[in-house]
């Protein structure tokens, strides 16, 4: 492409400003997490007066962070694996079969993704509470309730992305497997899944991130023993004071698993996230 002479300047001004905008909170998060408490109570300092790793030790004592961490880990892992497992079967059906109701199913599933969460919150809350009261299945406040809810949140997008991946695998491959005597499900397990592995890993990370970051349902559907990080971090602000250095240290710690996963698998995730939208 022929570029006018001002374009490199425009590029660096625009992209530079966007980088600053993006970096500023990341810088604040990182530097505040190594400040002593005195530094975060008065006027803002760009550079910590003393570097202290104390906040990273304190965060585990101020609130039961390890407990919330474990809750988030359990809920997000199980929800992600279950969601992707279910999505693999559904995506295989949509990608490989033409059956009546296929279109209706795809559109319905995808459109539920777009409905406001608040629409499901009140009825689900009522259903969970009343199930506990009438038949003794305690979903309200339990990890199981949260897992089931979260796995349906990532399900539509997982199916959508996996259909894109499966479509890109030649059907000749699973036909060959079927000639060898595997049934359709055998072909899925032995040929399609291994071939789509990068996509499946990317979708699993996406589902994990969705559950890890969810706030609305976590704030209503959990109690003290099942609280996840999304709600638990509020514990650093007390009536009188907010431990900003600890809050930033804790934010950093809880972000590391998902950001690392995202950046490592960035290429696959970007492919998957965009495949559907571009088509």
């Amino acid at each position: 492409m022929r570029e006018p002479r001002w374009l490199p300047w425009a590029r660096w001004i625009v992209l530079g400003s966007l980088s600053l905008f993006t970096l500023l909170p990341l810088y604040v998060m990182a530097t505040t997490s190594i400040k002593p408490l005195g530094d975060v109570q008065g006027d803002f300092h760009w550079i910590p007066t003393t570097i202290s790793l104390q906040p990273f030790a304190d965060i585990w004592r101020t609130v039961p962070l390890a407990h919330y961490f474990a809750n988030s880990l359990i809920v997000a892992s199980i929800a992600a694996v279950a969601s992707v497992t279910i999505a693999i079967f559904a995506a295989y059906a949509i990608s490989r079969y033409r059956f009546p109701g296929r279109k209706v199913f795809s559109v319905t599933v995808l459109s539920t993704q777009m409905f406001p969460g608040i629409l499901f919150l009140l009825p689900l809350f009522m259903i969970f509470v009343n199930l506990g009261n009438t038949i003794g299945v305690e979903l309200y406040g339990s990890r199981t309730g949260l897992i089931i809810t979260y796995l349906t949140f990532s399900l539509p997008f997982s199916i959508w992305m996996l259909v894109g991946y499966f479509d890109s695998i030649p059907t000749a491959l699973d036909e060959a497997a079927q000639v060898d005597g595997s049934g359709p499900v055998g072909a899925l397990l032995r040929v399609v899944i291994p071939a789509a592995m990068p996509g499946i890993v990317a979708v699993t990370i996406y589902a994990f991130m969705t559950a890890w970051a969810e706030v609305l349902f976590a704030s209503v559907m959990t109690d003290e023993s099942t609280r996840t990080l999304a709600v638990g971090l509020q514990g650093y602000s007390t009536q009188n004071d907010v431990y900003w250095n600890q809050l930033m240290a804790a934010s950093l710690v809880v972000s590391v698993p998902v950001v690392a996963g995202f950046l490592l698998l960035q290429r696959y995730l970007v492919q998957g996230l965009t495949a559907g939208a571009v088509k």
Partner: peptide, 9 residues
């Protein structure tokens, strides 16, 4: 990165 970060962080 901001998109990958958990919303609350």
């Amino acid at each position: 990165t901001p998109y990958a970060l958990p919303a609350y962080a």
